[in-house]
Design a binder for these strands. Structure first.
Length: 574
RNA sequence: GGUCCCAUAGCUCAAUUGGAUUAGAGCGUCUCGCUACGGACGAGAAGGUUGAGGGUUCAAGUCCUUCUGGGACCUCCA
């Protein structure tokens, strides 16, 4: 039930039916016709640019065409009580009572699926993919929530989604990590000093991991790093991956698949795909210039495999092999993405942090090369989050240094507030997260404001002793609405459109903004009753107008569906 | 030197995938409304050359281009 699509199609059909009047030669010429919500000042329910699009194609005055269209639409579509021509040639429509009644009942009937556009596509969304070298920090939080909510959104909209976590359990970083755990164990067991070395991980949490591993591996002597490496690696990675999983769980984020880089390297996925790319001339053997940067001393100009990413929009070609001939991170990632392509998703999506922007072009190039330009990888970037407390930059204790663990944040702020606020910004702007403010119970805090709206609606149903999920038919009732209800209905029919746009543009922030606006209209109506008794919707313990009740039922359905997408709770009482 | 993101009211941000003589919210400022259906709210006012210039379009905050300012990134790391 998307009225905008419904009437766009109806209007197009009527134009095609009367194409001689409009001199319409090609049906393609009207593809830009849309039905939208008119600005509030016009006091109409729907609007369309149809006349202007037609005018453009046949070079006529849009207002003249609007007149002709108005006649035809009023006569042939029975759903409008009036049509007005405004501005340069916009058509504004008022929906008649009969159609409102049908619309309301149909929305109530669709209930938990109201807003879904029955999109039939499959998606793979890779997000978080934090290095398994410790617990999650707050920097991961925005991307985690973004990915999770985008998934919920696409699922709600009818898509099939696989949520994936790529475990970077391979390479130098992992060796440094394992070595750090080993040295911490030596410190605990033999009182050896932990060396001062930049490449080692010296966060406090490494001690926790060391203790846990030590506890589990009681039989091992820890007298040789080389000898114990494999078992140490296995246990350390396992432990930190579990830390990450438990952090994610606290945030309400759950992945469908954890994909190990090591496993993929071992089963030769990388070698296979690079062989294919080589065969297709996307990979060649050559030399690269020494990289800019402070550590070019170890650089050797050796012959290595290079991917022609510049042929697919990247700025330069990229190395697939290191000095020693082993695969680069990029090569492994190509292997990883080839396994995603093998699973035949309609669309691949990666959620990245701002610090990985430079990586987008090359991995997108690789996906294009592997799929013959058929699949493109959509990368959504989440900009940085600035953490504040009462407007001041938040500083961690000296002990923990720069590392701000996610679970510490979760101890101060509940998951609902974190989730909602992390989405209350477009993903490509920096976000300020003040975790004093998000706990306030007032209008400054949008999470609360939306939840409060729902609580108020439920209080009405409690007062009336009516089960909010019970639906009665409107047909026998006189359809009468006031201006507040009119505005609410206008907003209500926007919901499927909001879901559609958010889903198409992959911009989940549109959901909380919409819920906030809907709540505003409701709170405004509620307060009007105090000012003017004519607007009280309960009179003598009974509902004054049954239509009002249905509108409130619909609002609560939308709030439920919206908060389901956001993964935020919605208490009936506060 | 390069790539990408951002710039809208005093502050923080929206803006229906290019729409409407009047660009919207919240906070802050000023004014007003409560023993109610839950005031944890609401109503009103003031506040703008949408960073600057040029272009495309019937229509530009939105697209293209140049410039200015802010941010992220620029290993064969992960």
């Amino acid at each position: 039930m998307n009225l905008f699509d419904l009437y766009t199609n109806k209007i197009k059909k009527k134009i095609i039916k009367n194409k001689s009047i409009f001199n319409l030669k090609n049906q393609n010429d009207i593809k830009n016709i849309v039905v939208e919500t008119p600005p509030d000042k016009f006091n109409f329910d729907l609007s369309s640019n149809a006349a202007m699009i037609l005018a453009k194609n046949i070079n006529k005055n849009p207002r003249v065409i609007a007149e002709q269209l108005k006649e035809i639409l009023l006569k042939e579509i029975k759903d409008f009580s009036s049509i007005e021509i405004a501005g340069p040639g916009f058509l504004n429509f008022k929906i008649n009572n009969n159609t409102w009644q049908k619309t309301i009942d149909s929305i109530l009937k669709s209930n938990k699926s109201y807003g879904s556009n029955k999109l039939k596509k499959s998606f793979n969304i890779e997000f978080v993919s934090a290095n398994p070298t410790g617990p999650m920090h707050v920097g991961h939080c925005r991307g985690a929530i973004f990915g999770d909510v985008l998934s919920n959104l696409l699922i709600f909209n009818g898509g099939k989604v696989t949520k994936e976590f790529y475990i970077n359990d391979y390479g130098n970083q992992i060796e440094n990590f394992v070595k750090s755990v080993y040295l911490r164990i030596r410190e605990i067991k033999f009182k050896e000093n932990f060396p001062d070395n930049k490449s080692l991980y010296n966060g406090e949490y490494i001690k926790d991991i060391a203790n846990a591993v030590l506890n589990k591996l009681k039989k091992i002597k820890f007298d040789s790093y080389e000898k114990d490496f494999e078992i140490l690696k296995k246990e350390s990675l396992n432990y930190s991956l579990n830390l990450i999983k438990s952090d994610l769980k606290l945030l309400g984020v759950k992945h469908d698949l954890f994909f190990s880089e090591t496993k993929m390297v071992k089963n030769k996925s990388v070698d296979k795909i690079i062989k294919i790319l080589k065969k297709n001339n996307f990979v060649f053997e050559g030399f690269l210039e020494a990289p800019r940067g402070d550590d070019s001393s170890s650089w050797k100009k050796t012959k290595r495999l290079i991917f022609k990413s510049s042929s697919f929009g990247d700025d330069t070609d990229r190395a697939l092999q290191k000095n020693d001939g082993t695969w680069t991170y990029f090569a492994n990632d190509i292997g990883y993405h080839s396994t995603k392509l093998n699973k035949k998703y309609d669309s691949l999506i990666n959620i990245l942090g701002a610090d990985h922007i430079g990586y987008i072009k090359r991995i997108s190039a690789a996906v294009s090369a592997m799929s013959n330009n058929k699949i493109n990888l959509t990368c959504k970037v989440c900009q940085l989050v600035k953490f504040l407390k009462n407007g001041e930059p938040f500083k961690m204790s000296k002990r923990s240094g720069d590392f701000f663990p996610l679970n510490k944040l979760l101890k101060e702020v509940n998951k609902d507030s974190i989730r909602f606020m992390m989405l209350y910004r477009s993903n490509d702007v920096e976000l300020e997260f003040d975790f004093k403010k998000v706990l306030e119970k007032n209008k400054d805090n949008p999470v609360f404001y939306v939840q409060y709206c729902y609580a108020r609606i439920n209080s009405i149903f409690r007062t009336l002793k009516i089960d909010p999920s019970k639906k009665t038919s409107l047909s026998s009732v006189d359809f009468k609405i006031n201006n507040f209800e009119q505005k609410l209905l206008k907003k209500i029919i926007e919901w499927p459109k909001v879901v559609e746009v958010a889903s198409n543009k992959k911009e989940p922030h549109r959901i909380p903004f919409y819920l906030y606006e809907l709540s505003t209209l409701f709170h405004s109506y509620w307060s009007k009753g105090n000012e003017d008794p004519n607007y009280k919707f309960i009179k003598n313990g009974n509902i004054a107008n049954k239509v009002t009740l249905k509108i409130f039922q619909i609002i609560s359905i939308i709030l439920e569906n919206g908060m389901f997408i956001l993964g935020v709770s919605l208490p009936k009482k506060m």
